[in-house]
């Protein structure tokens, strides 16, 4: 199995497309760091600024037609701002860790790129005709299929690591090394204000995002295995991703939607205490995503196992 995974990885990293994606990711990460730096102006007096923010949030909460997510977001920020004023806890100076925490959107880039690679890894071999020679070796079809799957997951994890590493490195240029033990205020699962280590929150957010990444990769992988078309797999997966993001709002209103993967696919919602529904927890989301991953893998395996490879 190790040999098979080595083969699949060799194939992934020997392709020009892979390196284009990695370079793009690098560029996007550095670009986001520069933009983040430009936008982070420090106020001279944190108290007046925080009081200003409090008024701003209160104004926003008075808007009647505010969407549930925005409302929750404003409430959270208000809670933290009031806590800062009451307990004399200023927001920490920006450093690489706080910057990384604001990059959660870049995880979507990793998802898109992982979808592109995952959509091709099976379908591409059918298109090129190489599947025949791959399958006539003393390995079960399951081993062939899952070695590909694991290689894509490893690639996605490598991209995530690259994002983290480059994001950190780029921000070091602006803010210095930062403090690994610096803390800030967050809301816990019950909505209480707690003090947590920023770097740990960063690692938690990126680590947990492996679940949604795996879920989208598995989806693209399954579609590509079943339909044998990489382009179709990319198209359908990206469509699902776009539709999925807009489903988070809908989930707040319709309870049944919480069992769909969409509202469970953004782990930063738990870091910032913005679950789509109050009863949804981190563990619930992980369980839902894992169930979908398992079902998609089972389906891919059954189709791959049974299929006559006749072209």
């Amino acid at each position: 199995m190790i040999g098979l995974i080595a083969n699949e990885s060799m194939k992934i990293y020997s392709r020009r497309l892979t390196w284009i994606l990695l370079l793009l990711l690098l560029g996007i990460t550095i670009g986001a760091s520069v933009l983040g730096n430009v936008n982070s102006a420090r106020a001279a007096d944190w108290r007046t600024e925080t009081e200003q923010l409090v008024r701003q949030y209160e104004d926003r909460l008075r808007i009647a037609e505010l969407s549930p997510t925005l409302r929750a977001d404003a409430e959270n920020k208000l809670k933290i701002a009031n806590y800062r004023l009451a307990n004399d806890v200023p927001a920490p100076d920006p450093d690489p860790w706080t910057a990384l925490l604001s990059f959660s959107g870049l995880i979507e880039t990793v998802i898109v790129f992982a979808i592109i690679v995952g959509a091709d890894i099976v379908a591409g071999e059918y298109t090129a005709g190489t599947m025949k020679l791959l399958l006539i070796r003393p390995h079960s079809r399951a081993a062939i299929l899952f070695s590909k799957y694991i290689a894509v997951l490893l690639f996605a994890a490598a991209m995530l690591a690259l994002l983290l590493l480059c994001g950190y490195a780029a921000n070091v240029l602006f803010y210095g090394w930062g403090d690994l033990r610096a803390t800030d205020l967050f809301l816990n699962g019950q909505g209480q204000v707690v003090q947590s280590t920023v770097s740990m929150q960063v690692l938690k957010m990126y680590g947990l995002s492996l679940f949604p990444i795996a879920a989208y990769v598995t989806f693209a992988f399954a579609v590509s295995t079943i339909l044998r078309s990489g382009a179709l797999a990319i198209g359908i997966s990206l469509l699902i991703m776009i539709v999925g993001n807009s489903m988070i709002e809908a989930t707040a209103k319709i309870e049944g939607l919480k069992y769909l993967p969409f509202a469970n696919s953004d782990m930063s919602l738990y870091i910032f205490h913005l679950p789509a529904r109050p009863e949804m927890t981190l563990n619930f989301s992980i369980a839902v995503l894992s169930a979908y991953i398992a079902a998609l893998l089972l389906l891919s395996w059954i189709v791959f196992q049974q299929r006559d490879v006749s072209f």
């Binding site: 194939k11 020997s14 392709r15 020009r16 090129a128 005709g129 190489t130 025949k132 020679l133 006539i136």
Partner: peptide, 15 residues
């Protein structure tokens, strides 16, 4: 115990 070419010798062109 089998070695084979099935139809065309399809190879990984990028390797």
């Amino acid at each position: 115990h089998v070695g084979a070419i099935v139809e065309n010798p399809d190879l990984y062109n990028y390797l």
